[in-house]
Amino acid sequence: MTLTLERRATTAHRNVGVFGRADFPAGSAHEQVTFFQDRATGLEAIVAIHDTTLGPALGGTRFYPYADEAAALKDVLRLSRGMTYKSAIAGVDLGGGKAVIIGDPATGKSEALLESYARFVQTLGGRYITAGDVGTNSDDLDIMGRATDYVVGRNTAAGGSGDSAPMTALGVFQGMKAAAQAKWGSPSLAGRSVGVEGTGKVGYQLIKLLLADGASVIATDVNSDALDRVARDFPEVTIAPSVIDRVLDVYAPCALGATLTGESVSVIAADVICGAANNQLADTAVERAIGDRGIVWVPDYVANGGGLIQVAGERLGTSAEEVRAQVEKIFATVVRILDVAQREGVLAGAAADVLAEARLAAAR
């Protein structure tokens, strides 16, 4: 069963569902939100297409045990809007989209379910292109590729560019180095303490980069298997039950979003916040609280754009060397954003949004 809600000028029911939500910034209406269900496989999925000004909407499929449908809808709407801005700031010719599958991937994921989901993606005719996200990986994308042409991030043996986690981590690392330069006058992280929250695909790769640069790393994760892997592969890393409240130079949120709240910001002792998680701010007022404390925050959709750059390159046949070079430009982008923020007396998030919106406006 498929239900599609399309953008319309007015609606009698404001601040509910998709249209005119009070918890979204003005002007953030989505072009299309589609709900998919397949009772035979247990599939319940939502695809949100936010904006296709720059090209087809691209974004990963998150497989997660949401508390309810409302929580899943809120997440996919926020994530897809973020992808629009991420694509714009990264300089790729793609729009913003995202998908969520409601369920526990550890118990509910099956080849039949993934193929069913992919068949639904195919019905969108290329307006949405999927990739991996929390709860999905390149092996899952290979399975999806059996039933849809609109998937990127598959394993190299299946014609894809492989896991995007290393490039995502590289982008975060470049953003962190740019923030270090703004805060301490040097991009080096040697001797700096970094707390990595979330040691999954991206967090693990980020730890590798940080250690190679001479940083000391403290790591935490709710997944004991992920932490065990870090402890085994990187014995120099300190494992802790929490890092957000530790005395650190850098706090790196790399798990799920919304860890930056009014309450958590009051206890953060780090000078820099830069991580891979999407939607790190629980609400827009939180960034002001971060700035008031003199903490440098790198806008999440800028820092974590490396994976998007990789899969965009996959569509175009871009070489791995060219992709890496483009990901490394995230350093210069963050430097520019932080310079604009300081010069204009605005927050980094606002400075990043202005740059992204300027590219969207030019395309329109």
Rank of each mutant, 00 (worst) to 15 (best):
V76E: 04
D292A: 11
I239Y: 05
G17K: 01
D271F: 09
M167W: 12
F173R: 07
A147N: 14
E6V: 15
Y64I: 14
I268E: 01
T52S: 10
R315Y: 10
L256A: 09
G55M: 04
A40H: 11
G185M: 06
E328W: 06
I207C: 00
R343E: 11
N15K: 15
V296R: 01
F36I: 08
T148C: 05
A26L: 15
A362V: 09
N137L: 07
Y64W: 13
R192V: 02
G95C: 04
V202W: 01
E115H: 11
A180H: 02
P25T: 08
S224A: 15
A180F: 04
N278D: 01
A320L: 14
V16Y: 13
G313K: 00
I102D: 05
Y66I: 07
V47F: 01
E31D: 08
D292H: 11
K329R: 15
Q326C: 11
I218V: 14
I337W: 00
Q326R: 14
L308H: 03
V265D: 01
A45W: 00
E115R: 13
I207P: 00
A112V: 05
A361G: 10
G307F: 00
N15S: 15
D271K: 12
I129H: 04
A219H: 02
V92Q: 02
D353P: 04
L227G: 06
T11I: 14
A147P: 13
W184Y: 11
D51W: 01
G171H: 04
A29Q: 14
V194C: 05
A48M: 07
A351P: 06
G185A: 09
D228R: 15
A57V: 05
H30V: 10
L355M: 07
T11N: 13
G200E: 03
T168Q: 03
I273F: 07
R78G: 10
L5C: 15
N278Y: 02
A358H: 11
T11S: 14
L113D: 03
G262T: 10
T168Y: 01
V247P: 13
K98E: 00
V18T: 09
G132V: 15
A352T: 00
V134K: 08
V237C: 02
I101A: 04
I239L: 08
R229K: 12
R232L: 12
K183E: 01
